[in-house]
Amino acid sequence: MSKILIIGEIADGKLNSGTAKVVAAAKGIGGDIVIALLGKDVGVAADAAAKLDGVAKVLKVERAENEHILAATFAPQIAELAKDYSHVLFAGTAFGKDIAPRVAAKLDVQQLSDIMHVHGASSFDRPIYAGNAITTVEAPAGTVVATVRLASFTAVGEGGSAAIEAASTSAALPSHTRFVKMEAQKSERPDLQAAAKVVSGGRALGSSENFKVIYDFADKIGAAVGASRAAVDSGYVPNDLQVGQTGKIIAPELYFAVGISGAIQHLAGIKDARTIVAINKDAEAPIFEVADYGLVGDLFQVVPELQGKV
């Protein structure tokens, strides 16, 4: 039977919502599911992790050095914990992508990125070429270290009551990497990766000031705000709003693509959205090929009108 270790992600003391989706992937593999949380004080996150359906145990790995998330210090500890497990799973977030390969290399195994479907303990689907092809892969013998594509899984519920245990690690930690600062965008809006509704703006917005039309509409319908790479590159919005192949891959119930032409790299980030609405003045824009509802028009007229009518 598989023994699965999930490395939970913590931001501002809270458990990242993606962890519940990684548990869903782990349930597909089947076996004992253990969540390890690394940090200085992980109590709040551990309580949340213990509630997730299907989790047998939560390990608190609390060390002063774990105050900041650094791959260089997290990876040796995770590699040490991993020796008792058949699988080590991470969310396919910046956190997981930074740390998982470092853990895999320490264990001398190849790593699997972006599991989108689980066929069994050693058989998985993953996307390549920005999701333009899906491969089925068989893992070799040895520990499977993988990241999970969050948009492909539905979070498990919260009926569980797993045991919470303290775990210690003895791995020597390097001092060659030091945290300096985090510039996080504080926002009252829903989290882009977990939101049921998302309104994204593209290059056609034209400026940072004009993005107000996107924020206002998003606030009216309780949506998160996203953006295309072009809008981020142009400096209209910060990088953490980017949706696409190299930004965030999301799966909301409802996605508005406003003034976004629909490059394949952007489409790679929204393929799992339930309903896509495209608003663009160019009737030939590729976004209309994938949209469930398309409206050709000037976004600066359409979006405020839409806002007034919902």
Binding site: A11, L70, A94, K181, P238, D240
Partner: peptide, 10 residues
């Protein structure tokens, strides 16, 4: 570039 914004390390 991380999910929450921009992190600086040395």
């Amino acid at each position: 570039e991380v999910d929450a914004g921009l992190e600086t390390i040395e």
